[in-house]
């Protein structure tokens, strides 16, 4: 996993880089927009961690430029600007996620992995959590190496939850992903699918847990992580 870290404070850049390398990323570092553009030209990374306040300009300009070139590379913005308006501005300009300084490197790594788990992302093909592995190409699920037999609907639910690992997934996002426009699911259809999925995963010995967030949706996490 190749990561480009754009950060101008030397000690912070150095320490973040080392921490991200420990987390399994190959890190290139740029301390200015100019350096970042040079690296992007010769060695495109899988994900970018972008600081906004840089000595030669605003990180959002670089982001804007990338999106104008139809470059869809995932970008995590890290900044000291904490206001919601900054966040909206960042997301409007094409940021995929946003994290406020000071952020722990582990958190940065987790967010980057989440971005890479998207369909088409580097980690998007084989989704893994605990002893559970989901191969999106063959649409097969294994727990502890043994296959788990799931109905199509349950597999779809599991895929959405795994791609958004560590995040709450709103009901309607899941419903949009698993039902076609013609299907009219009953009010409790999703609950029924999730409870079947829970039971089957438990029976298969998968050490994952699907949490209900009442009024919002669901969240999957590794069991015992809580």
């Amino acid at each position: 996993m190749k990561l480009l870290l754009i950060e101008d404070v030397p000690p912070l850049a150095q320490l973040t880089r080392e921490a991200l390398e420990t987390e399994g990323f190959t890190v290139d570092h740029a301390e200015s927009l100019e350096a970042a553009r040079a690296i992007l030209a010769v060695a495109p990374p899988d994900v970018i961690v972008l600081d906004l306040g840089l000595p030669d300009g605003d990180g959002l300009d670089l982001l804007h430029g990338l999106r104008n070139e139809s470059n869809a590379i995932p970008v995590l913005v890290v900044t000291a600007r904490a206001g919601l308006n900054d966040r909206i501005d960042g997301l409007d300009r094409g940021a995929d996620d946003y994290i406020v300084k000071p952020a722990a490197p582990a958190e940065i790594a987790a967010r980057c992995r989440a971005l890479l788990r998207r369909p088409g992302g580097l980690l998007g093909r084989r989704l893994q959590l605990g002893n559970l592995v989901f191969d999106t190409a063959s649409r097969s699920v294994t727990a502890n190496g043994r296959p788990v037999n799931l109905a199509r609907r349950e597999i779809d639910v599991l895929e959405v939850l795994l791609r958004k690992l560590g995040q709450s997934v709103p009901r309607r996002v899941i419903e949009d992903a698993i039902y076609t426009l013609d299907e009219a699911p009953g009010p409790n259809a999703l609950e029924a699918s999730v409870s079947r999925l829970r039971r089957q995963l438990a029976e298969a010995g998968a050490n994952v847990e699907i949490h209900t967030i009442r009024g919002i949706g669901y969240l999957i996490s590794e069991a015992g992580e809580t």
Partner: peptide
């Protein structure tokens, strides 16, 4: 609630939302 639910779950607590209105209020969303 959506953004904070993972934190609540990590800490072993639940978080839920009950919303029975669609009213907008006058104010600063941030």
């Amino acid at each position: 609630v959506s953004a904070m639910a993972p934190l609540a779950i990590r800490e072993g607590r639940g978080l839920a939302l009950e919303s029975d209105t669609t009213t907008s209020v006058s104010g600063d969303a941030d």
